[in-house]
Structures are given as C-alpha cells and as structure tokens.
Simulated assay, not measured.
Amino acid sequence: MGVDIGQARRLGFHISLGAGYHLRPLGTSDFDSLLSMLQTNPDASWERTAPSVEYVRTLIDFRLEHYERFGFGVLAVENSAGRLVGQAGLQVFNVDRDMLEVVIFLASAETGKGLGSRALAAISMQAYSCDIACLYAAIRLDNFSARRFFSSRGFELIGRDVHYAQVCGIWRRLVVPPTS
C-alpha cells in the first residue's frame, strides 16, 4: 500500500502543536542544541546512545538533503522558549515503494505530556490533507514505550526489517480523516 511521495511535497514546514510547541525545519544553526539534546537524552536517538559530533553533523545534513530532495522531512520540535526538545515529522521510508515513515524523538523531560500524541495528530492531519493513505513507523524491538505509543494509536505490526543497522518492527496505520 504505497503513496505518491510527490503528494507529500504539500506537507507544511511550520506546524503548531499547541501549548507553546511547534514544528519547524531543522537548520545548521541547530547543531549545538541537537547535540546537547541527544547527548543528554540518548533515548531520543535511533541508536539509543549518546551520539558523536560527527553523527549529529551527518544527521542534520541528512535532514537538509531530505528537505531538498523531497520537499518535506523530519522537523525540529521547539518549545515556547525557543528550545529544541525533539524531532518529529515524515521522511521517506522506502522510495521504491512510496512509503512514508513517521519519526518522533523527544527529550525525556518532554515525554508523557501528550506532546508525542499532538505531534502524531498534526502529522496525520497533514498526511490526510495531502491524500496520503498510509503511514509507517520503524520501531526498535527494545523500544517498548514507542511500541505501546504507536500500537495505542492504531498502528499495527506488519513485519520486521533492518533499518539503519537495527532490527526493528515495521508498523503501519491507514490515515483516517481527522476527528473534530
């Protein structure tokens, strides 16, 4: 069940999440903030370890190249004080199959407050408005909280794969119209 990745080019780059939080594009000026957030919150990275300086440079370059190539991507989660507290958005999961992956990584101090739920709702609403029918999530097998989060929001485990050198579960959810 693929999507037309071209449809995703209509996704927004500035999205309000309420309660003073919003999504905005990452930039090279976010290097120090992202490095600090990931080094103090290793669970907010795919590898679940404190990243190196080079890793964060590569990650920002990857995000910027994704914006350039596809016209959308994973964004910075910023609080009302202008502090970067996570990353959230959509990225191409498999270009050959037109699959889009939901990415949500939050600093540990930001979890359990509904921010991830608001980010997923905003991402899903944008996906629906772009006629995207299905979203995917790649979740490490040892990330029990993410598995619970996505499962409780309608994602179903459809298989396993290796994603960025980690065995993970592949989860899928149909995009449904937003509820009022």
Results as ranks from 00 to 15, higher is better:
R172Q: 15
V74L: 10
I132Y: 01
A137H: 05
D32N: 11
R24I: 02
Y128V: 04
R10K: 15
T111P: 00
I139R: 02
R10W: 04
G89H: 07
T28K: 10
G71P: 05
V3G: 07
L141V: 09
E156A: 15
D161S: 15
K113R: 15
F150L: 09
G154P: 06
N41I: 02
S108D: 10
V85W: 03
P25F: 05
S129R: 15
N41K: 04
N94A: 06
L17Q: 12
S29F: 00
Y136T: 10
P178M: 11
D30F: 08
Y128G: 01
L75A: 08
P42V: 07
G73T: 12
L34T: 03
R160N: 14
G114C: 04
S16M: 03
D161H: 13
E156L: 13
S180F: 10
R24D: 04
N79Q: 03
V103F: 00
R148Q: 11
Y164H: 14
E47D: 13
Y21P: 04
V176T: 15
A50P: 11
R69E: 14
I104K: 02
S33T: 01
G12L: 14
L11C: 13
T58W: 08
A44K: 04
D32K: 08
M1D: 07
A50H: 07
R24Y: 00
P51W: 09
S52V: 07
E78A: 07
R173S: 15
L59I: 06
E110A: 09
F31M: 01
V92G: 03
R48F: 05
I158H: 08
F72M: 13
W46S: 00
V56F: 08
G112Y: 03
S29D: 14
